[in-house]
Nucleic acid binder design. Structure first.
Lengths: 141, 141
DNA sequence: AAAAGTACTTGCAAAATACAAGTTGACCGG
DNA sequence: CCGGTCAACTTGTATTTTGCAAGTACTTTT
């Protein structure tokens, strides 16, 4: 569960996130967990970018191994697992919001709702609290 | 120079940055330009992570194609090119600082100086101004 | 004029990814 | 209580990307 830069290419903080998230798919799983309310394997597969199933399985395993996500049996459905962000995973929120702002600025075709990017600009702390609250609610349900 | 999500997998802002930076190397080049004062091809090759020369060439081309970096002849050395961040590239700074904070928190072996992460916590705007100023100075030299 | 520096390009083996199909254990309707 | 469907993967293979070593062309230094 604990993970540090011991076996990484360097101890640089930028490199450290790349060792876990440096590919085209991993951060999309985080996005789905953080903003889309997804928690089942099958839900991640449905995302618009169409991750393939072997890649998804490998990424979920890696995220769990690095302490970013958790995996638990769904008490209501024995054949399902509930994936969720750990505290370490939730702590990615500021990065995710800054990424959203950058893309909203430089992608003329972005699908970020203007209300959302304006809310981040006006009150980033408030948006963070709202998102965090939504994650807690989901877990308790 | 203009780039948007037209030919991307989706119009999601998270995916948009992945289309340009979603690999193990690209963001290290940005780091070297932003924080390490590097500007020559050979300097990027020297970084601790040891990017290979063909990958570096391809990434610099992509960054330039996406409007994140610029490339100009060095007036003093005809065999050298100066690489620099554009405004779009400099605008990645908030993301880079949040990444630094996250890694400094969760990597027990991080090489981030405590003075730096504390400065970001205490006065992020101030740190941003300092870094931005250093980038402007470099360009004018 | 020869050697070294700078920014690449090329070739090839190894690793990662994409796509399709198969497996295993619930769950559900009749 | 049996067959079909659902859910979460695993396996196999073709394609793409990466990693490493070597080579090229132009400049600068000695």
């Amino acid at each position: 569960m604990e993970h540090n830069s011991e076996n990484c290419r360097s101890n640089c903080p930028i490199n450290f996130v790349l060792e876990t998230f440096g590919d085209k798919w991993t951060l999309l799983v985080v996005r789905d967990l953080m903003f889309k309310g997804k928690k089942y394997y099958g839900e991640f597969l449905e995302s618009h970018e169409k991750i393939s199933t072997n890649i998804l399985a490998e990424r979920l395993q890696r995220l769990e191994a690095h302490g970013v996500t958790s995996k638990q049996k769904d008490p209501d459905h024995k054949s399902k697992f509930i994936y969720a962000l750990t505290e370490k995973g939730k702590a990615l929120l500021p990065i995710m919001l800054e990424i959203t702002q950058w893309s909203s600025t430089y992608d003329s075709l972005t699908n970020t709702p203007k209300t959302f990017s304006e809310a981040i600009s006006a009150d980033k702390e408030g948006v963070m609290k709202t998102v965090m609250a939504s994650l807690d609610t989901k877990n308790k349900k």
